[in-house]
Computed example of a mutant assay.
Amino acid sequence: MATILIAEDDAHIRELISEHMQSAGFITVEAGDGVEALDIVQNSEIDLIILDIMMPQMDGWELCKEIRSRGRDMPILMLTAKGETGQKVKGFQLGTDDYLTKPFDPAELVLRVKALLKRYRIAFSQLVQLGGIVLNRLTYKVMRGEEELTLPLKEFELLFKLACHPGQIFTREQLIVHIWGMAYEGDDRTVDVHIKRLRERFADESNGFRIETARGLGYRVVSQP
């Protein structure tokens, strides 16, 4: 049973979210500010965080940044009254996985939480199916039916990362960190080059997926019939 941390300074909203999460079968832990939330993350087993941007002592931006800088790899859903694209971009750049604007439908929030947890469970697998291909992280092989495909290492890692989180948008900066590492000093446009090559390799619709560009945000992989 997954444990959800709700970091929100409004007690009524915390209670509302907690009630719906518990009704969906989750365990909930609550924090009224970012400092308290960070302490809980560091000292407890948390599976997912729902956090508000505007919190006292440490806001949602800083909390998200601190969690990611300390190597904690758990899904983060940002909850805020601000719905502008610029806010979403900033959230994704800091490591947020999803974004929901207030006022929100509690039922939608529950569905998004379930979807995020499912994505992260897939992410810990070493074998991922994407449309008509299967990627094996242990052998770095790509199988399309009985056909074995060979990809350069970085192309494989990039496709594997996107495939582990279908539908999730990754910024260029996030992909650089995940695939090339924090010490990479090259142009982040190298991501565009690798994406272009992957699109060319898997241009046939029979592969069952496509890599989409989310304008102003980044890239995501989606299945197609």
Rank of each mutant, 00 (worst) to 15 (best):
W61M: 11
I4A: 07
L217K: 12
A37T: 04
E205R: 12
L63P: 03
C64T: 15
D98S: 08
N136W: 00
R119G: 05
K82Q: 13
A24H: 00
S69V: 04
E212P: 00
R201W: 03
A107N: 12
H165A: 07
E173D: 15
G86L: 15
T190L: 15
D192M: 04
E155Q: 15
G181R: 06
D9N: 12
A214T: 11
V41W: 01
K154I: 12
F124K: 15
H178W: 13
D59K: 02
R220Y: 12
D187Q: 07
E36Q: 13
A7L: 03
Q57I: 13
V41K: 02
R197C: 09
L94K: 02
P103T: 09
L94W: 00
E147W: 06
E84H: 10
L16I: 11
L198F: 01
N136L: 01
S23I: 05
H178R: 14
P103Q: 07
Y184E: 12
R215Q: 14
E212G: 00
F124R: 15
G131Q: 01
L38R: 01
H194E: 10
K161Y: 02
D10E: 13
I6A: 08
A115I: 01
G95K: 01
L198Y: 05
A203G: 08
M143Y: 07
W180I: 09
L135D: 06
T139I: 01
L77W: 10
I4Y: 00
L100G: 03
D47G: 05
L38K: 06
V142T: 10
G131V: 02
I53V: 13
G186S: 01
D105L: 11
L116W: 06
G218E: 05
F160W: 05
A163M: 00
K102E: 02
K196F: 12
L116N: 13
R68L: 03
F209W: 08
F92V: 11
R137T: 07
